[in-house]
C-alpha cells in the first residue's frame, strides 16, 4: 500500500491535488485566480498534446485548431442557438473527435516535418474558416459566449471555475497516466522508439497513433469549450498558428513524455507573460531567450531534466551510505 502511494504515479497525482488545494492560500484576488484557471485549461490541452508528441512521437503544429473548434462549437451552439452548454460541449467534443478520426488517418501516414506541415495546414484551414465565416463566428472580432450552466446552476466567477478546472485537471492527469500504463501506452512507447520495429512485433501502429490523435484532439476541444464559457468571449487568436506553437512550446518546455512536465510547462509559460507585462518592449525577446536557454541547458524539458538530476543525487547519496556501511 505504502509502496503504491510512493509510486511516481499516485504520488504525483497526490502532490498535484495538494498543490491545487493549497494554492488558494497565495491567490490574493480574482486576478490571481484568473491566471490559475488559464494555467489549468492550458495544462489540460498540453497533457493531451504530450500524449501525442511525447509518447506517440507524432508532432502537431495545429492543435489550436481543435482548441478553437471546441471553443467556437460551444460558443455558436450555446450562444447563437440557445443549446444547453453541457449539450453543446458534448456535441462539439463528439464532432471534433469525429473530425480528428477522419483526417487523422491520412495525416498520420506522414512522418516528421511533413506531419508538422500537414497539421499546421489543417490548423490554418480551420483558422481561415473561422475568421471568414463571420455570420456564425463573428469573424476576427470574435463572439460572446454565455456562462456555463447546468440546470439552474450557473458557473460564474473565477473562484468556482478554479475548483472546476482544478478537478478536471486531476481527471485529465489521471486519464493520461492510466493510458500510459495500459497496453496501448506500452505500444506507443514502442512506436516512438521505432515504428517499423513495433510493427514487426505485431503492433498496429496506425490504429494506436490514430487513437492518441483523437484523444489529444478531445482534450483540446473540451478545454476550448470550457475556456470559451469561462472567458465569455472567444476570438480567432485562440485558433491561430501562434497559439499552436505556444502549446507545443509548453509541452516541450515542461518535458516530453512527462505528464507532469506538461502541467509545469503550461504553468510557467502562462504566467511568464504576466511577469513580463511591465517590460512590454522586451517581452518577446525575453520569452524567446527563455525558450532557447531552456532547450539548450535542459534539452529534455524542465521536469525530466530536474528529475534526473534529483535521482542521480539520490543514487549518489545511496552509494555513499552503502560505502560507509
Amino acid at each position: 500500500m505504502l509502496a503504491h502511494l510512493a509510486s511516481p504515479r499516485t504520488g504525483g497525482l497526490l502532490a498535484l491535488a495538494a498543490v491545487i488545494a493549497l494554492l488558494p492560500l497565495v491567490l490574493r484576488n480574482s486576478y490571481f485566480y484568473d491566471v490559475a484557471v488559464l494555467v489549468g485549461l492550458n495544462a489540460i490541452v498540453c497533457i493531451g498534446l504530450n500524449l501525442l508528441i511525447g509518447y506517440a512521437g507524432q508532432i502537431s503544429l495545429g492543435h489550436a485548431g481543435f482548441f478553437g473548434l471546441g471553443a467556437y462549437g460551444s460558443a455558436i451552439l450555446a450562444s447563437r442557438y440557445g443549446w444547453p452548454p453541457l449539450a453543446a460541449l458534448l456535441a462539439t467534443t463528439f464532432a471534433v473527435a469525429l473530425l480528428a478520426f477522419i483526417v487523422g488517418r491520412p495525416i498520420l501516414r506522414l512522418r516528421g516535418h511533413y506531419l508538422a506541415m500537414a497539421t499546421l495546414g489543417l490548423g490554418v484551414i480551420i483558422f481561415m474558416v473561422i475568421s471568414t465565416e463571420d455570420k456564425f463566428t463573428g469573424g476576427p472580432d470574435g463572439i460572446s459566449v454565455v456562462p456555463f450552466r447546468i440546470g439552474g446552476f450557473v458557473l460564474q466567477g473565477e473562484r468556482i471555475w478554479y475548483w472546476v478546472v482544478g478537478a478536471l485537471l486531476l481527471v485529465a492527469v489521471w486519464l493520461a497516466l492510466n493510458l500510459i500504463e495500459s497496453p496501448t501506452g506500452r505500444a506507443l512507447r514502442a512506436l516512438h522508439s521505432s515504428e517499423v520495429g513495433a510493427e514487426v512485433v505485431g503492433i498496429n501502429a496506425a490504429e494506436h497513433k490514430l487513437m492518441v490523435f483523437v484523444i489529444s484532439a478531445v482534450f483540446a476541444s473540451v478545454a476550448g469549450s470550457l475556456g470559451a464559457h469561462y472567458s465569455g468571449f472567444v476570438t480567432p487568436a485562440k485558433v491561430a498558428f501562434l497559439h499552436s506553437i505556444e502549446l507545443v512550446t509548453m509541452v516541450v518546455f515542461g518535458g516530453l513524455a512527462s505528464t507532469f512536465g506538461a502541467v509545469v510547462g503550461a504553468a510557467v509559460l502562462t504566467t511568464l507573460p504576466q511577469l513580463l507585462a511591465t517590460f512590454e518592449d522586451y517581452e518577446m525577446m525575453v520569452f524567446g531567450a527563455v525558450m532557447i536557454g531552456t532547450m539548450i541547458f535542459l534539452p529534455r524539458g524542465v521536469v525530466p531534466s530536474l528529475a534526473r538530476l534529483f535521482r542521480s543525487h539520490r543514487s549518489a547519496d545511496a552509494d555513499n551510505k552503502a560505502n560507509k556501511a
Partner: peptide
C-alpha cells in the same frame, strides 16, 4: 482579446484603478 481580459482583471482586482482607458481593437474591448 484573451490577454486584454486578463489585464483588465489585473487592473480592476490587483491594481485597483479608478477608471480604465484602453482597448485599441474591437475584439479586445468586447
Amino acid at each position: 482579446a484573451e490577454k486584454a481580459r486578463t489585464f483588465a482583471k489585473r487592473l480592476i482586482d490587483q491594481d485597483k484603478v479608478d477608471v480604465i482607458v484602453g482597448g485599441s481593437t474591437t475584439g479586445e474591448t468586447m
